[in-house]
Simulated assay, not measured.
Amino acid sequence: MSQYYTAQRIRGLYEPDSKEPFKLSRSKIDLFLECPRCFYLDRRLGVGRPPGFPFALNSAVDALLKQEFDVYRANGAKHPLIEKYGVDARPVSHKDLDKWRHNFTGVQFLHEPTNLLITGAIDDLWQNSKGEYIVVDYKATAKAEEITKLDKDWHKGYKRQMEIYQWLLRRNGYEVSDTGYFVYCNGKADRESFDGKLEFDVTLIPYKGDSSWVEKTILDIHKCLNDGKIPEAGSDCDYCGYINSVKSKE
């Protein structure tokens, strides 16, 4: 058994009769939208999908970006990327920012009708001249083409991610701009040699979020968890497609 995977968990499972709030992360909300079956198996029965290996390079880019923007935050100054794109914003300090960035805490809100504790860890927080907070998310990849917009199928998950963060901050009583930003780092593979360093093109992509779907989705998740039966798989779930193909060969 891999050290990264436990085939059958017994902790952190949803219990319908429990009075304790059940923690539900942003990524698990996205899992439900992708495949209710995989979500139920994971959160209710303790059988999660086998994980991919950690993206160490992406984590390094994330950490370095946070350090870089924190320098400008401490000085109350605009980052050159913000200046380049003419955005009315600057990195802002907040007493809870470190907690909001941490994967095991994040921004939290107890959804009382369902007793689900919704969580999500943001990458960065800016503020505009109107005093509105701006959610910022870092992304890193290596594509041949320049990345200037979110028009790929997998970008839908990025957009939902942004919208959940906006929803969480609003539920905590903060004024939040509808427009968030993705700091997108695209690794360059056209250099003559590696020389021990990887260079990136960095673009700033605005996205106007619409979090109106979040409330209904939380209610649907609660219904799914309390239904007592395994739901149908998502139509595009590769994991369930694989399992079904294996079963057909047995």
Rank of each mutant, 00 (worst) to 15 (best):
186 N>Q: 02
162 M>Q: 10
17 D>R: 11
181 Y>M: 05
220 D>G: 02
5 Y>E: 04
208 K>G: 04
92 V>F: 00
158 Y>E: 09
84 K>V: 07
124 D>H: 01
184 Y>N: 01
250 E>D: 10
77 A>M: 10
35 C>E: 08
10 I>G: 10
184 Y>T: 01
150 L>W: 04
115 N>A: 11
236 D>P: 06
87 V>Q: 01
67 Q>R: 14
27 S>R: 10
25 S>R: 10
61 V>S: 10
107 V>D: 01
38 C>D: 05
143 K>I: 06
100 W>P: 08
133 Y>R: 08
203 T>F: 05
188 K>S: 07
217 T>G: 05
230 I>L: 06
47 V>G: 05
236 D>F: 11
213 W>R: 03
162 M>E: 02
34 E>S: 14
153 D>N: 12
233 A>G: 00
170 R>T: 12
34 E>M: 01
193 S>I: 08
168 L>G: 01
203 T>W: 08
220 D>A: 08
228 G>R: 04
129 S>I: 05
236 D>N: 14
227 D>I: 12
74 A>M: 13
235 S>M: 11
160 R>I: 07
198 L>R: 13
229 K>H: 14
3 Q>Y: 11
215 E>N: 08
162 M>A: 01
150 L>A: 09
93 S>W: 06
105 T>Y: 11
88 D>V: 11
176 V>A: 00
170 R>L: 04
197 K>I: 09
147 I>V: 15
50 P>N: 12
172 N>T: 10
1 M>F: 12
114 T>Y: 00
239 Y>S: 01
228 G>D: 09
146 E>F: 13
128 N>W: 07
163 E>H: 07
131 G>D: 06
83 E>M: 11
149 K>M: 12
85 Y>H: 10
144 A>N: 11
11 R>I: 10
164 I>H: 00
135 V>S: 05
109 F>R: 00
44 R>E: 09
64 L>E: 11
180 G>H: 03
191 R>Q: 13
212 S>T: 14
152 K>L: 08
97 L>A: 03
27 S>T: 15
225 L>F: 09
241 G>D: 02
149 K>L: 13
118 I>R: 04
26 R>W: 00
132 E>W: 07
89 A>T: 04
91 P>L: 08
82 I>K: 03
83 E>C: 04
119 T>L: 05
33 L>H: 06
232 E>L: 14
248 S>E: 12
82 I>P: 02
107 V>A: 04
73 R>H: 02
131 G>P: 01
123 D>L: 06
88 D>C: 11
12 G>K: 12
111 H>C: 06
37 R>I: 06
66 K>E: 15
145 E>M: 04
157 G>T: 12
145 E>G: 06
94 H>V: 05
64 L>N: 09
79 H>W: 12
18 S>C: 08
11 R>V: 13
124 D>C: 00
169 L>G: 10
41 L>N: 15
107 V>H: 02
96 D>N: 13
177 S>T: 10
230 I>G: 02
247 K>P: 02
124 D>A: 00
104 F>M: 12
38 C>Q: 03
72 Y>E: 04
234 G>D: 08
43 R>A: 13
30 D>C: 09
147 I>E: 09
82 I>A: 09
52 G>V: 01
199 E>T: 14
160 R>M: 07
250 E>H: 11
221 I>R: 02
159 K>E: 05
136 V>D: 06
196 G>D: 07
250 E>W: 07
194 F>H: 11
174 Y>L: 14
57 L>F: 13
212 S>L: 08
100 W>F: 15
175 E>R: 14
204 L>F: 05
1 M>S: 14
